[in-house]
Design a protein around this nucleic acid. Structure first.
Lengths: 222, 222
DNA sequence: TTCGTCATGTAATGGGTTACATGATTAC
DNA sequence: GTAATCATGTAACCCATTACATGACGAA
């Protein structure tokens, strides 16, 4: 029930794969590190977490940090809840990662997929990138057609808006071209020779930078 | 009730201000001419039209085209329904046009506002453009901060995604700068002496070939 | 006469937000 | 001791989509 769907679920699993976290922090990561893709509210995050627990993909544990332990020892206290991916959850996430459907190239899905390319096998990355590209090319085609058809009767602003949008899409296509090229030659374009894990199974998880608990400037700042 | 809200309502009123139309055509315009901003489905359009009628901003009339007249003369036929803006509707739209709140600079609202700049007074245009710009600059600021804070622990793909997003936002800011400048000097950039936008132009975009009236590619092409 | 497109609609559902309610911890 | 921020949740609502249902019109 209530398949708190697609992208949020996916992102949550993906983030928890890297390390266990509690809800609040999860949301911050959703909005900043992985940022750019839409800011989710607690109103969607917590129910989503509940449902993932219910499906056996996550476990809820009381936080183990000193203050949580203290808190737990006293009566009736609500400690942080740390969510951890279960084995089944991990498996499920791999499955999601390897599945490429036509939704994968839609704007929001694509960003989410891309954000976890680090854990994605090369051929899936290729499919997603190419799918996205042809999606955008279609869109471009339609925009050109509609523009050609109605250029005369549109005012300057509308025209300018369309021009700018098309330019943005064209830019993204060029970006994808570069990425696809990099994938093909096997090189990541901005450090010399970073070894990429090719398999679905990530060998080296990005090093856990445990330290500073400070971390200001989180919120959506709506 | 059911305030089929904001952007759809706004766009519908704006399009009908230019000329009366029936629902089907309205949707096409929403998705193409005004395109780019999200494709609405009939499931939202028709109820929205109903509600606008209920509020006295639109009237429903049977279509006046020959085939509609013929249709109407026979019994029990459903003819096209042409929607026309009422005086109150026009007034209401003007009001919406002149109102600038903080929602006006959000992505979707902004596109809709911009699309009707042709009917918007210069000072409102200015406010909207400048509001949008500072909105984006905030966003940029946050992105930079979050990037600086966490550069080390992010993998290449996440980094690349953020870099690309930031670049897009920066581009939009430059675009807004140009537009604001044009507004200030009172010139529409691209007639007269066409000083050409400075931005990265595609080397030779394929020039649109001729006028085949075949008109494919209307629908969302999901 | 059938197929594609024009044309209008509704019910169920989805996926999310806002606003609210609650309380702990930290910094000053 | 009080304000800010950390932290967790829920209920009511919102806006839109999907899938469905209906039917006309033109062309092959």
């Amino acid at each position: 029930m209530s398949r708190r769907s697609g992208i949020l679920e996916f992102a949550v699993l993906g983030l928890l794969r890297e390390s266990p976290m509690h809800g609040y922090e999860l949301r911050k990561r959703l909005n900043t590190s992985l940022g750019v893709f839409r800011a989710f509210s607690y109103g969607s995050l917590y129910p989503c977490l509940k449902s993932l627990v219910a499906q056996g993909w996550l476990t809820e544990e009381p936080g183990s940090a000193p203050e949580d332990v203290r808190a737990a020892s006293r009566a009736g206290r609500r400690a942080k809840i740390v969510y951890r991916l279960t084995a089944e959850g991990k498996e499920h996430f791999e499955e999601l990662l390897s599945h490429t459907g036509p939704e994968s190239w839609e704007d929001e899905h694509f960003a989410a997929r891309f954000a976890f390319f680090g854990q994605t096998s090369r051929d899936v990355r290729m499919r997603v990138l190419e799918g996205r590209r042809s999606r955008l090319e279609e869109r471009l085609e339609r925009m050109r057609a509609s523009l050609a058809r109605s250029r005369e009767r549109l005012d300057d602003y509308t025209l300018e808006l369309q021009r700018h949008s098309m330019e943005s899409v064209e830019r993204e296509v060029r970006w994808l071209n570069e990425l696809i090229e990099s994938e093909r030659t096997g090189r990541s374009r901005r450090d010399g020779s970073a070894p990429q894990h090719t398999s679905g199974d990530t060998g080296g998880r990005p090093r856990e930078r445990g330290g500073s608990r400070t971390d200001p400037s989180d919120d959506t700042a709506k």
